[in-house]
């Protein structure tokens, strides 16, 4: 038998394979971009190669921004934003977990906070940004960090509360039937069963908190990535706006691929890898548990975006 005969699958031409489609999308975007550029004939709008050139210059520190304190570059702005993001995220996680636990364990505490948590959840980050900007002024880190906390915390609270509510009753009953002491139950049943919900909380607090943070930097700060994109917008420089927009997208994708996916892999190795159920659950922003949680709330849920 020849090698060709052994390959029983019919040969699929390259352009019909899914891989080709995936490569085609960015090409299509660039083509459409050029088409829009030519048809608009706008003086402001710029074609892809100019934007890529700008991004390259940013990465190699050719261009410098000026923010009153002297020139600054992409890495400084980016570093500031990341520091603020982690600070806001950490506070949102700690405070949100405490409130979420209390709300999950006690119906009274839940009744007390519920409507206000929903109100904060439905609030656009823009409202926080404008308000905090007036209160704290554009200097310093306070306004962006508070905006990050306020955007992220309702997601932490709701996820932790749902985690507590959805603890596996049958496993607690089992432990009780065997007379297992309480601290052992907490360590072996309660905490592991909360993990997927905590993980969803981390993911949401991070991604939503980041979006809130960037908006606050636009309206209430004189530094950071958000401020940089606003700087180019005010300067009517398309290459700056779209270039920074692409940096944002790259950052979001890097966060997902380099932080959350490996983390999920590690934390949930006990989950069987059968079927695609686990995969759907761990996709960015599509977490079933959280969507379920928000559906229960039946308010203007979704992300704290825009």
């Amino acid at each position: 038998m020849t090698a060709a005969a052994m390959d029983s699958r019919p040969r699929v031409p390259f352009y019909r394979r899914p891989v080709a489609a995936r490569i085609l999308m960015p090409i299509a975007v660039i083509v459409v971009w050029y088409l829009v550029y030519w048809t608009l004939g706008s003086r402001i709008f710029e074609p892809p190669h100019r934007v890529f050139e700008f991004m390259w210059n940013e990465l190699t520190l050719e261009t410098r921004l000026r923010n009153g304190k002297g020139p600054s570059n992409l890495y400084q702005m980016f570093g500031l934003t990341v520091v603020r993001l982690f600070a806001g995220f950490a506070i949102a996680m700690v405070v949100g977990t405490v409130i979420g636990l209390a709300m999950g364990l006690s119906k009274s505490v839940n009744a007390f906070f519920h409507d206000w948590v929903m109100a904060v959840l439905a609030m656009p980050a823009l409202v926080w940004a404008l308000f905090l900007g007036l209160v704290f002024g554009p200097q310093g880190n306070q306004a962006p960090i508070y905006a990050c906390i306020l955007a992220g915390i309702p997601f932490v609270i709701i996820n932790v509360r749902e985690g507590v509510r959805n603890t596996p009753k049958e496993l607690f009953d089992m432990a009780r039937a065997f007379g297992v002491p309480q601290n052992k139950i907490t360590r072996n049943v309660l905490l592991p069963s909360l993990m997927p919900f905590l993980f969803a909380a981390v993911r949401y607090a991070f991604s939503v908190g980041w979006k809130g943070l960037v908006i606050a930097e636009v309206f209430a700060s004189d530094s950071g990535m958000g401020w940089a994109i606003k700087f180019w917008y005010d300067a009517h420089q398309t290459r700056g706006v779209i270039g920074y927009a692409l940096f944002f997208v790259a950052f979001a994708l890097a966060l997902e691929k380099l932080l959350f996916e490996p983390l999920a892999e590690k934390a949930f190795k006990w989950r069987p890898r059968v079927g695609d159920v686990g995969v759907v659950e761990e996709q960015f922003l599509l977490d079933q548990t959280v969507e379920g949680a928000l559906e229960v709330e039946q308010f203007t849920g979704g992300e704290s975006d825009g």
Binding site: E170, L171, D173, M174, A175, A177, F178, G179, V180, K184, N188, V189, P192, S193, M195, W270, R271
Partner: peptide, 25 residues
């Protein structure tokens, strides 16, 4: 002494190994 219990569904801790499940009780 504590009675033993076998449930309709096994009710094992999915995040612990088989041996850890036995050690749990």
């Amino acid at each position: 002494a504590n009675p033993g219990y076998v449930f309709q569904a096994a009710r094992l801790l999915p995040w612990r190994s088989v041996m850890e499940n036995l050690m749990f009780v």
